[in-house]
């Protein structure tokens, strides 16, 4: 479905042209301010070493070069732990955490949204309550629990706690309440569909925007995961840590450091761009109201 723009509708709503122009200029300025650091990082990563240390510093590169990236690959290929291992660590943590979070929260959201069992309200209120504080509050006892479980220095503490994202559950559940009519579920039940089939075939496609949003948020968090206090072994360290170790190795590596920033941004940016367009597309087509 194309954008719902009916020709005479914009005439009905009162819009002044002067204000429109003002808004455009304002938004343009904000966009410049917001994207400046990324533009700056990209530009820095293309600067040859002598340009990185000129005074006064320049924002844009004069003679772009790929040296920093080549240097980075050079350093990478000489690293003690094979570089592919760091990459695997990060990809694995991100993928496992994201997939787990989407599955666990959407299952629970379906349970809370479409079943009226005793205790459903209570559980949901508990979840909403837990959104009111962040995991930093529980960092210390979480460490104690995870060390008691014997999970220190494994992938598990970086992945499993992500499966129980209160925010994720909340977002999907609210979206389900609004966009999955109970009558549809009832109809499917009458047709004899098992609960799990209803969840997988009917509910999940309808709440696609919600779990795409969840994927965006989750990938951002996990992709930059540093392992924190949980990872000691060099071969389990994620990409961010490894790259930052390389980048801070020497002052001559400040160009490499910029290259690292750019490379680490590729995945979150890619995921965001891919899902953003699909979120909008799904929003437009999921217009099923009862």
């Amino acid at each position: 479905m194309k954008k719902l723009k009916i020709p005479h509708m914009s005439r009905q709503l009162n819009r002044s042209r002067a204000l429109n122009v003002f808004i455009y200029i304002f938004l343009f300025l904000v966009a410049c301010f917001m994207s400046f650091p990324m533009v700056f990082a990209v530009s820095n990563s293309l600067k040859p070493i002598e340009e990185l240390f000129i005074f006064p510093p320049r924002i844009f590169v004069i003679h772009p070069t790929a040296d920093n990236y080549l240097d980075l690959f050079d350093v990478i290929s000489n690293s003690w732990v094979p570089f592919s291992r760091y990459l695997f660590n990060t990809v694995f943590i991100t993928a496992a955490g994201t997939v787990g979070q989407v599955i666990f929260s959407s299952l629970a959201a379906y349970g809370m949204s479409k079943f009226k069992f005793p205790g459903a309200k209570f559980c949901f209120n508990l979840i909403v309550f837990s959104i009111m504080f962040t995991s930093t509050v529980t960092a210390i006892p979480s460490y104690i629990i995870i060390s008691k479980l014997g999970w220190v220095d494994t992938y598990l503490p970086l992945i499993v706690p992500f499966f129980q994202s209160s925010l994720g559950l909340y977002l999907i559940k609210q979206f389900m309440d609004a966009n999955v009519p109970d009558s549809l579920i009832e109809a499917a039940k009458i047709d004899g569909a098992p609960h799990f089939t209803i969840y997988l075939r009917i509910v999940m496609p309808l709440v696609k925007p919600a779990w795409l949003t969840l994927i965006i948020l989750c990938v951002q968090n996990l992709w930059n995961s540093t392992g924190g206090v949980y990872i000691y072994s060099e071969e389990l360290k994620p990409l961010t840590v490894a790259l930052n170790q390389l980048a801070t190795g020497a002052i001559s590596r400040s160009g490499i450091s910029a290259a690292v920033t750019v490379i680490m941004l590729i995945v979150p940016v890619g995921v965001f761009l891919a899902s953003q367009s699909r979120v909008i597309e799904t929003m437009a087509t999921s217009g099923m109201k009862d």
Binding site: A108, G111, M112, F117, C123, T138
Partner: peptide
């Protein structure tokens, strides 16, 4: 009601279990 809607418990069980271990328990322990 619990009996009729019992499938709901199965759907929320995995999440709530992890929630108790990694969110609720830490608050109490803290």
């Amino acid at each position: 009601l619990a009996k009729r809607e019992r499938a709901g418990y199965l759907f929320i069980a995995p999440f709530m279990l992890l929630f108790c271990v990694f969110t609720l328990a830490p608050v109490i322990i803290s």
